[in-house]
Write a protein that binds this DNA or RNA. Sequence first.
DNA 1: CAAAAATCAATCAAAAACATTCATTTACAA
DNA 2: TTGTAAATGAATGTTTTTGATTGATTTTTG
Lengths: 250, 250
Amino acid sequence: MLTEERHRLILDLLAEKKVVKLQELVEATSSSESTIRRDLSQLEKEKKLRRVHGGAALLHQKREELSVLEKSTKNIQEKRMIAQYAARFVQNGDCIYLDAGTTTLEMIPYLNAKDIVVVTNGVTHLEALLEKDIPTYLLGGFIKKKTKALIGRGALNSLENYSFDKCFIGVNGIHLEYGYTTPDPEEAMVKSLAIKLSRQAYVLADHSKMNESTFAKIADLQDATIITDELDNELLELYEAKTAIEVVKK
Amino acid sequence: MLTEERHRLILDLLAEKKVVKLQELVEATSSSESTIRRDLSQLEKEKKLRRVHGGAALLHQKREELSVLEKSTKNIQEKRMIAQYAARFVQNGDCIYLDAGTTTLEMIPYLNAKDIVVVTNGVTHLEALLEKDIPTYLLGGFIKKKTKALIGRGALNSLENYSFDKCFIGVNGIHLEYGYTTPDPEEAMVKSLAIKLSRQAYVLADHSKMNESTFAKIADLQDATIITDELDNELLELYEAKTAIEVVKK
DNA sequence: CAAAAATCAATCAAAAACATTCATTTACAA
DNA sequence: TTGTAAATGAATGTTTTTGATTGATTTTTG
């Protein structure tokens, strides 16, 4: 393949996709990494594109990713730990429901079981899921602007058509007496139904959510297995008396 | 083979392929490398082409890259023109369905009617819709990776719960005999149902789609109003005999 | 924070493509 | 036919391109 051809192909692919990985280009052109790197360097010199770690991007590009990055730096370590732990429960062939929310979003990179199918109400989850080539179904319904979660009657109707091996739900409060809670009743209904439709339900929450309760109840403690990252022994015993609980070690 | 002949052949091949390898020319002309090199040098001097390592390329490859950009920009402008025109049909209080696809996506910035509600199967439409603070419902269903459109039984089920004042559908073919068509049958079903559920349906397509047909039929011509950007008078009359059609002026 | 993995730049030798030269062939007019 | 100029193809040494390798750097992971 001619240099000229490669350059053209690279720019075309880039125009189409906004960002391209080096490996994709290696595949698309059947040439070596070295060659592609040289191409990218040259094209960058010619101001045709911008190199980024792992590939290349269009010159003038939005910084959506940046804002996502900024947003997620805070509790991310803890959430990722929980997410990674939770992802281990997913087995080959499982049909799982992934609740909207950052913790469940973090699970996706660790979903390495084969032949799984994912249903979710989180629009933000889509990109990551498709990136991993996981067949994905989205619930219908009303879009909640702030969280980009699908809620309402449409979401419940959609959900009723499925049943799951496992579901993974993010919550805002876990409380010995009040069970699992979240601030938005509409979201609570979706989470609640997802739990009912699953053979096994997992609730993901970092330690700041323990012994807290918020407005809308999702389910009773015993309806799900808790996955969290910290809990002193005294409380652990109290919770263990009521339901299964997994505490992820740091 | 005559020199003149060879030169003509080279230029023809080049015009067709944009880039041509020296070896290809050697084969095509049954002459030696040296000869072809001389030809290329000469033609370059005459500004008929540009030599590149390994062969030759069209002279204004750079400009042509631009023109690819221009072309896509032009296409976008046509699409935007159609989209802007279509957006005028949306009135205060309307419930509308926006089909997935780039043309309907372009409509969103022009949706300035008040109190409208939008239902869509295009995940990519979401951001723009929320940006404009338009209450939005998403269909459920399976996510088609390439287009990020929601399709399949889930989408149809979701769709059945609604009915619309107007729907705006992108198509790949408009044909006097075969009606509206699109390549993917799954998408066709969704589009078809949306049209059935709407009091008034609009089909958006630039002129390149006119008199074309693709695999899967969506609906008959008379089931929707066509909005396009170019059509000679003769054809216009033929179409007008069958359905309403709006031709957007440049 | 440290280890592991991925990505990167720099270097080098092999392969491909190059310009140049020269002997031979071809075209064509004398 | 013959002379001459243009065109051709082969041979030469040079330059460019390429893919592999190395160790450095960045990013991800635990």
